[in-house]
């Protein structure tokens, strides 16, 4: 049996760039590797991924493994699973960290089952158990009502991490490390799925995941027109508009603006929750916000448990007056 040693981070590449979550994975990976006194390896898979190896090393990796193949241009899971199976077989890490992204949600479970292990998805905390030296994998469950700590029975101990839950290191361009190239050995026929189209639903203005201020509304907003008042506030504060699930399911806002466990997970400076009761599944998407401000007619609403400031009242009366006062304060 191979000896499983070291920490590996799958550094997701998209459009020939390393995603921010890769640096977050390397940040926590570095910490775990130091604690175990082991090496941190970065794995980069894609087309033209080789140029990114040095970037991964600058973010904390001791070495990088690169699989570069034109067939890996799109993230087709069939191809990526077979490539990753080969890479993991070669480097046999004790821990494999991936990102909870569009492709990570697809790739990580497939790869885990291919390797004969499970993966703990969407971890918000990773630590080493002081006695067993096994990885303690903490993730939200029950839609965020609870958190669970898991350990893996076998190796590699696989996890995906939630966006922005871990901290990336400041890149250090002077760091050095070995870069090893691994052949993909892929045939086009290995890929059973075919991507016919990639549809991007453009949203005007700042992207919700990049915005410092997000003004979000819930079921109580009642209509697409209702959201115009939220947009007015977002515009004044140079922010973006978002929503909990019901407004998206009802078509008042595009699905890409849904904040929550199965939508966007964001961490703005300021989050306005307007007519949002604060279900756990929604809070999973916004509880990383620095300050939450809630407007809700129900004083007992869950949202007030996590809000820093609040008003109990009908948003239809509160929001116009609030917007008016904000406008006045910003002008003065």
């Amino acid at each position: 049996m191979a000896e499983y040693k070291g920490i590996a981070v799958y550094c997701e590449v998209k459009d020939e760039k390393m995603l921010p979550i890769a640096a977050e994975g390397l940040g926590i990976g570095r910490k775990l590797a130091d604690e175990l006194g082991q090496e941190l390896a970065a794995v980069l898979v894609g087309s033209n991924a080789g140029n990114l190896a040095q970037q991964a090393i600058a973010h904390g990796a001791d070495r990088a493994y690169v699989v570069d193949d034109p067939l890996l241009k799109d993230c087709q899971t069939d191809a990526y699973v077979s490539v990753m199976e080969k890479v993991i077989g070669q480097i046999t890490p004790q821990v494999l960290i991936m990102g909870q992204t569009d492709s990570g949600r697809d790739l990580a479970p497939r790869l885990a089952f291919r390797l004969g292990v499970t993966v703990t998805m969407d971890c918000v905390d990773l630590a080493i158990d002081s006695e067993s030296k096994r990885l303690l994998q903490t993730k939200p469950v029950y839609g965020g009502n609870a958190q669970a700590v898991f350990t893996s029975e076998s190796n590699p101990q696989m996890v995906t991490i939630r966006t922005k839950a871990m901290t990336a290191l400041e890149p250090d361009a002077s760091r050095k490390g070995d870069i090893t190239s691994i052949a993909a050995d892929l045939q086009a026929s290995d890929i059973r799925t075919k991507i016919l189209d990639k549809v991007v639903e453009e949203v005007a203005g700042i992207k919700i995941e990049d915005a410092e201020v997000v003004v979000a509304g819930g079921r109580g907003i009642g209509s697409a027109e209702g959201f115009q008042q939220l947009e007015e506030l977002a515009k004044m504060l140079k922010g973006a508009v978002g929503a909990s699930r019901p407004p998206c399911d009802n078509g008042w806002l595009p699905d890409t603006l849904q904040v929550g466990l199965t939508g966007k997970i964001i961490a703005p400076e300021l989050y306005f929750a307007i007519a949002i009761s604060g279900s756990s599944q929604h809070m999973s998407g916004c509880s990383g916000s620095k300050t939450i401000i809630a407007i809700n007619k129900d004083a007992e609403a869950n949202i007030f448990r996590q809000a820093r400031f609040g008003v109990v009242g009908d948003w239809k009366k509160v929001l116009p007056a609030f917007n008016e006062k904000v406008k006045e304060l910003l002008a003065s």
Binding site: G116, V117, T118, T120, L136, V141, N145, A146, Q147, A148, V149, F150, T151, S152, E153, S154, A294, F304, R305, Q306, A307, R308, F309, G310, V311, V312
Partner: peptide, 21 residues
């Protein structure tokens, strides 16, 4: 048949210091 063990299940605690206007 498990390959994962649940070590602990807990509810996160929030301070609940909402300041109402």
């Amino acid at each position: 048949g498990q390959r994962t063990r649940l070590k602990k299940l807990f509810q996160p605690v929030y301070e609940g210091k909402c300041e109402f206007a």
